[in-house]
Design a protein around this nucleic acid. Structure first.
Length: 153
DNA sequence: GCCAACGTTGGC
DNA sequence: GCCAACGTTGGC
């Protein structure tokens, strides 16, 4: 089993929106970055655990946990000419973009903020904290995952 | 294949 | 709202 971190803007789709979905499950559409696409298409497996991260907001940080319930399949929002994620270069017969489905697991008692993550020596080479990092889907090392969980209390 | 221009991300 | 960092596009 692997560990991941997925970013989302709470004004667009936050963890509370995930909780409200039928079966508390949603497809992770709209990712238009090849590295992130490759991870969703090739590496994420059912049962993998995901940190749900809120970005571009007042208090950026990890707010809870979700898990992968459906492995990579074509992102159909790329096929809808009227949708905001439409990409004419993605052909249904040869899809360019992929997504996974994730299900809500639990919300942390508090947000583990980006600010405090940066302060931890153990996490100093975490992908999320790398300079200029803009990936919206990224792997998390188990040692980092375990360490972050301990910060919740 | 290089690289300038442009668009996007996301913290602050 | 600013802007640094980065990815993508497209002319050559």
């Amino acid at each position: 089993m692997k560990y991941w971190l997925m970013k989302s803007e709470p004004d667009v789709f936050g963890i509370d929106d995930l909780i409200k979905m039928p079966k508390q499950t949603e497809h992770w559409d709209g990712v238009r970055n090849y590295q992130a696409r490759n991870m969703m298409r090739d590496e994420m497996k059912v049962g993998d655990q995901v940190f749900f991260y809120h970005s571009n907001c007042k208090e950026p940080g990890i707010v809870g946990i979700a898990e992968v319930v459906q492995e990579g399949y074509p992102d159909f929002t790329a096929f809808d000419p009227n949708g905001k994620y439409y990409d004419p270069k993605s052909d249904p017969d040869n899809p360019r973009w992929f997504m996974v489905d994730i299900r809500y697991v639990r919300k942390f008692k508090r947000t583990i903020t980006l600010t405090e993550l940066k302060e931890k020596k153990t996490l100093q080479n975490m992908r999320l904290l790398a300079r200029g990092n803009r990936l919206s889907v990224m792997p998390v090392e188990k040692k980092h995952w375990d360490f972050i969980l301990k910060q919740e209390k």
